[in-house]
């Protein structure tokens, strides 16, 4: 059970958040209304997707106060706990891409196919492109095609043909590229990676305990962030880490664990 601790916690979090949103629409619960683009917590606290708000801002629209405050609150929250924690703890697409990644490993596609041919920086280009197009076209460009918003809206308000987009992402991750959508394409994840550059909660690696089994690297959706494995004791500082905790789950020797960044620096200095 210990080896699925964070995975289970994440699934419970993802599903609970989803249930709160659905409950708000179907039964009128007041805890979390709206969807991942913008919501209202307990009917008081506004929350908003910073990348969506930025796209709206560059169209030249006069922003409503609620979405400005909402975007600041969300940025601050993920800026502290790890930007891409959104990706692995909240985003519903994560369940789909994780499933595709798991199937890919089980069916050993990665051993037959070329695993990586996209560039990790592709998502930052798409992020920039989304802002550029929003400014030129006068409408939030990524929000019009975003499969994440589409999926989430679909689950809360009725799916329409939105299931098709999710199927495409699933098949892309399963058959075309390992962790293709979340790891290479999604500009929303990229925006949270930028927000979380300096976040405090980080995975810490203790090289002394490491048995070099490489299980953590196998399950990690952002393998580059684990470059220090079995080499040096340090925390994962790259913003691309989603704080999903799968590496901590699978580690047999307790060489990985969550920790707070500033304390780590201090303890390193003392050594």
């Amino acid at each position: 059970m210990k080896h699925y601790r964070y995975l289970l916690m994440r699934r419970v979090t993802q599903l609970s958040i989803m249930a709160l949103y659905i409950g708000a629409n179907v039964w009128g619960w007041k805890m979390l209304q709206g969807n991942l683009s913008a919501s209202s917590l307990f009917g008081i606290v506004p929350l908003a997707d910073p990348y969506a708000v930025l796209q709206i801002a560059v169209t030249g629209a006069t922003l409503g106060m609620d979405i400005i405050v909402g975007a600041l609150i969300v940025s601050l929250f993920y800026g502290v706990i790890g930007g891409r924690a959104f990706c692995s703890w909240v985003c519903p697409v994560n369940i789909i891409t994780d499933t595709a990644g798991w199937l890919r490993r089980k069916m050993k596609f990665s051993e037959v196919q070329k695993r990586f041919f996209l560039n990790r920086s592709l998502r930052y280009w798409i992020l920039g492109l989304g802002l550029g197009l929003s400014a030129v076209m006068g409408v939030a460009a990524f929000e019009l095609i975003s499969p994440i918003s589409m999926a989430h809206r679909g689950l809360v308000f009725g799916m329409g043909m939105g299931g098709g987009a999710l199927a495409v992402i699933f098949l892309f991750d399963l058959l075309v590229h390992e962790n293709g959508w979340c790891g290479y394409v999604c500009p929303l994840g990229a925006s949270y990676a930028l927000i979380g550059q300096f976040s405090l909660i980080r995975v810490y690696h203790d090289a002394v305990k490491c048995s070099d089994c490489r299980d953590c690297i196998t399950v990690c959706p952002e393998k580059e962030v684990l470059h220090m494995i079995n080499q040096s004791s340090e925390s994962v500082v790259m913003g691309e880490c989603t704080n999903c905790g799968r590496c901590v789950d699978v580690c047999q020797t307790d060489a990985l664990g969550f920790s707070i960044r500033s304390q780590l620096k201090q303890s390193k200095d003392e050594e």
Binding site: A24, N25, G28, Q33, G34, N35, S37, A38, S39, S40, A48, D49, A52, V53, I56, T59, G60, A61, T62, L63, G64, I67, G138, V139, A140, E143, S149, R153, V156, F157
Partner: peptide, 16 residues
């Protein structure tokens, strides 16, 4: 309409 689709963040709070 032109301003509306610039501004709307598609959160569905009006729908709810």
């Amino acid at each position: 309409e032109e301003e509306f689709i610039k501004n709307c963040i598609k959160c569905g709070l009006c729908v709810e």
